[in-house]
């Protein structure tokens, strides 16, 4: 079991969290996305070995979603932070 640093509550066991998958931003204009781009958003994931940006939800805590940057090989979590318009292109 990993330890995750909820940006609101601090370090907790992953048991308190729900994993939300790879960060996979929704196309800003879904209607403008062609079928390939849309199906890649829906179904394709990178399944990286290495640093991955991913969603976590503090289910048994503050009820906030946040992003974590985790090395999927070593499970080292280098950063956790809330989504913000500024940070996301």
């Amino acid at each position: 079991m990993l330890i995750l640093d909820c940006p609101n509550c601090g370090a907790r066991n992953t048991q308190e969290f729900r994993y939300g998958g790879e960060y996979n931003p929704r196309p800003a204009e879904p209607d403008a996305a062609d079928d390939a781009a849309w199906s890649s958003y829906l179904y394709m994931r990178h399944n990286r070995l290495g640093l991955q940006k991913e969603w976590w939800y503090h289910r048994a805590g503050c009820g906030l979603w946040f992003l974590a940057e985790r090395d999927t090989g070593s499970d080292k979590v280098s950063r956790t932070y809330f989504w913000s318009r500024e940070q996301i292109p």
Binding site: R18, G20, W55, Y57, L64, W65, W83
Partner: peptide, 9 residues
């Protein structure tokens, strides 16, 4: 959780 996800992003 679903609503929160969209609301918080």
């Amino acid at each position: 959780e679903w609503i929160q996800w969209w609301a918080q992003s």
